[in-house]
Design a protein around this nucleic acid. Structure first.
Length: 479
RNA sequence: CGGGGUGUGGCUCAGUUUGGCUAGAGCACCUGGUUUGGGACCAGGGGGUCGCAGGUUCGAAUCCUGUCACCCCGACCA
């Protein structure tokens, strides 16, 4: 069977309408539901379980770098939010306010956190006294609220789940090092666990975080050629420290300001998983994050011994810590295959009378639909092997897609042509003026995604204005 | 916030133009039976004051006024 044959009518094909495909997959894979609250979504078990896996695996990596988890309040007093000018201006348009407690009007309104820089700064100003108190490496897993005008499942909603790391350091160098280190933790996690290759780089001033000295980003390329900002890491310098009075006494007994960082990824990563790996049959999850790694599907399960054998297989897989379930509902096998595929289960094991007679079972990969016949006694080791191969094949495929969707533009005509006709990232030189960024966005809807770490000069003039070029920039349409 | 669209069983929708008997279909659900290697079939069954509030009328899902909600496309943002 052709691997991209469309098997499920309810999913619109990607070619036909990518946006609709995305919504269909999200619904058919039962990842989320819309709620009665405007712009807010419900994570269903299958979607939340992906987040739990991301959380668990990322959290381990954070802790390896010395980070500790904390939890701060979800409310921020208005006066605290006001302390850093750029920061308030950046977030004010999208914060939700609490004005009443019960029947009584509050003396001071509280904002529902859109991000927690101000609370962390307030905390650090109290607990940091000496250089011996540094660094502080805190992180929290929580939800934040941003009153968005438009919403899309996992990509943008009024409330979303994320983690925000906030660190305070004695020196500028140490803060910069931490900023880059966490960006690399993200990029590595995305590649190794989510099988999503990232373009790493620095944001232009226009695109950087409100209040940051510099913002670094990991940008992924979706199947339709649009970019998705998947994680950011900010170096705040001492800007927040000065606004919040976070000072410590150094070894020479001199008062110094701390240097801070913050970094975050959100449930948007689930959106990336869907749009990087999914196909017309639904979701396709890399084994390492899949809530269910193997579904066992009995064929002719009413026949003697079939269910018993299927359950034996389940047990042997579970014994090896492979996340396994069985579909022993009385649906037809075809139904079960489609269902498992929509949910993105990496491998399925088929077991029927014919197999049992031969002492075999059939293992089918979700990404290629390739079938492997395997002795029942070897199923666990074969499953492990296939999951490993699948994990790296999926990354290789996504890498090939990324690399084949990067084009160079040497002048404005080429640039405009690329935006129109070559979905993906466009590499082009830039003079450093925000005006050119604005003009490019106005003319083409493409934005600067990042200035990659590996800089090279592909031309000496700015692609937009023709003035001397300063930076190589990755441009693209973005979510 | 601008432009467009939609509200009718759990879901997708028909019916609204031109008001008229008991508001329909497919899917899903429940019961029983036959099935099962790529979304099986038969029989029976339950479930809707047509988004909400007024109004017109002998009579409103359908016409009028108001209102609310959500979706999509832009601008703003993770």
């Amino acid at each position: 069977m052709a691997k991209d044959k469309k098997l499920v009518e309810e999913i619109t094909s990607m070619e036909e309408d990518f946006t609709k495909w995305y919504t269909d997959v999200v619904k058919k894979a039962e990842l989320m539901d819309y709620s009665s609250v405007k712009g807010c979504m419900i994570f269903k078990p299958n979607g939340y379980a992906i987040w739990e896996n991301i959380q668990r695996l990322l959290d381990e990596r954070f802790k390896e770098t010395g980070v500790q988890n904390v939890y701060l309040p979800m409310f921020i007093p208005e006066s605290l939010l006001q302390k850093e000018k750029d920061h308030v201006e950046g977030f004010a348009p999208e914060v939700a306010w609490v004005t009443h407690g019960g029947m009584e009007k509050l003396q001071e309104r509280l904002c529902v956190r859109p991000t927690s820089e101000t609370l962390f700064c307030d905390l650090y100003s109290n607990i940091v006294q000496s250089y011996r108190d540094l660094p502080k490496l805190y992180n929290q897993w929580c939800s934040v609220v941003r009153w968005e005008k438009t919403t899309r499942p996992f990509l943008r909603s009024s409330e979303f789940l994320w983690q925000e790391g906030h660190t305070a350091h004695a020196t500028e160098e140490e803060a910069e090092e931490r900023t880059i280190r966490m960006l690399n933790v993200y990029a590595d996690f995305c590649e190794q666990v989510l099988a999503i290759p990232m373009v790493k780089g620095k944001k232009t001033d226009k695109e950087k975080f409100a209040g940051a000295k510099s913002t670094y980003t990991i940008e992924a390329l979706m199947h339709d050629g649009k970019a998705l900002q998947s994680g950011t890491s900010h170096n705040f310098g001492d800007g927040f420290a000065k606004a919040f009075g976070i000072q410590y006494t150094d070894k020479e007994n001199k008062l110094q300001y701390v240097h801070q960082t913050s970094w975050g990824v959100s449930t948007r990563l689930i959106g990336a998983l869907i749009m990087v790996h999914g196909d017309d049959s639904g979701l396709c999850l890399p084994p390492l994050v899949a809530p269910v790694q193997v579904t066992v599907i009995p064929i002719q399960q009413a026949k003697d011994g079939v269910l018993d054998k299927a359950n034996e297989i389940v047990d042997s897989l579970k014994a090896e810590k492979i996340r396994t379930n069985i579909d022993d509902s009385d649906k037809s096998p075809g139904w079960k295959f489609s269902e498992a595929e929509m949910r993105g289960v990496p491998l399925r094991v088929e077991i029927g009378p014919k197999d049992i007679e031969a002492g075999n079972c059939v293992i089918v990969r979700r990404d290629t639909r390739e079938k492997t016949i395997c002795p029942i006694s070897d199923v666990a080791s074969k499953v492990k092997e296939l999951m490993g191969i699948m994990q790296s094949d999926m990354l290789a495929k996504a890498k090939a897609h990324l690399e084949s969707h990067i084009s160079d533009a040497h002048n404005y005509e080429e640039f405009k042509d690329a935006v129109e006709n070559k979905p993906g990232f466009i590499r082009a030189m830039w003079c450093g003026d925000e005006e050119c960024e604005l003009k490019i966005k106005e003319d083409t809807t493409a934005t600067s995604r990042c200035m990659p770490f590996e800089q090279e000069s592909i031309d000496d003039k700015c692609v937009c204005c023709g003035k001397p070029a300063k930076k190589l920039v990755f441009w693209g349409k973005a979510y």
